[in-house]
Amino acid sequence: MTILDDPGQGGSREPGAGGGAEPGDQPTEGLAFDPRHFGIAPDEPWPDDVPRGQDDSHWRFEHDPGRARIAELRIAACWIVSLLASIGIAVVYVTGAQNQASGILWALAFLGIGVGLILWARDLLPGHDVIASRGRHDASDEGNRWAVAESFARGLEPIARRPFLFKLLGAVGGVFGIAALFPLASLGPRPDRNLYHTKWGRGVRAVTEDGRPLRPSDLPVNGILTVFPEGGMEDALAPTLLINLGDAPFEIPPSRTNWNIGGIVAFSKICTHAGCPAGLYNVQTHQLVCPCHQSTFDVLEDCKPVFGPAPRSLPQLPITTDTEGYIVARSDYTQPVGPGFWNRG
């Protein structure tokens, strides 16, 4: 199904042959319109400074009235489809706007009009193949180029003769431009030590999403749970993973020997790469994977990154138990949690 055949078919002319419909030519089938033929325009030459092109007044079915009629009916049928679909839209709206039905009807309403227009343009409109001069829109003549340069230079002269004022204006403008940025600084507070701290701290209990404190025995071997500092759910840097490694041999630096409770360790859930929760835990390899960019951390080796773009280990949270036996933090994280930032160092 071709909607448009080679437009040259209707009335291709030899390249560069010129000619074409002169103003005095006879109109074809009454379709080529020239008001002078109807005695309603002054019989004077058209302005020739506007490139108007040479008309190709032939149209697809001009010699086949039968097919032209069919084309007309076909277009009408398209628009009837659109009309019916439009009524359908009203009906569907009243009956609850079921999504698929609505979508089909909206699509039909649009497509009916669109296909009809395309068919009309293809089958019943002349003039698809017109040649005209591009005119002189991409370059002016030399006289105009001189004129603009002269106008500008004339105005520039008295300004350029005061270089001090000219340069001062530039400098003042620059400084004011920077001053004008200050309102933007009100958009937010100064970056503070906030980025270095979380709601964890000495003796803060680790609680579940629904606020329950946990005992070490609540976490089975190979169990993993996201915990929060009690009363600090809203802290986006605080979510922490409690993992029970059981008797799997894990290495942590000597300075952190009392940071775990038996096999239970706590690491930040916030990926050090781009801040997504790195929570895909593989108990066979004891690796944590971040679903955003596939950074992989080895829990047995201090959560150091073993694959992907993460540049640093997940920070470890020192934990112990309080007098009631619940898991608490020994302190806040000892390094900033999450992705790097300029002042981090």
């Binding site: 069919i70 076909r74 049928a77 398209c78 039905a101 699509a107 009916g112 296909v115 068919l119």
Partner: peptide
């Protein structure tokens, strides 16, 4: 035959929509 051709374009539009729609339903 010609009359059928008249309707071919719009009918095809409807038919495709109906088939696709019902499959998805």
């Amino acid at each position: 035959l010609r009359r059928r051709r008249v309707l071919a374009g719009p009918l095809a539009v409807v038919a495709v929509a109906v088939v696709v729609g019902s499959v998805l339903f």
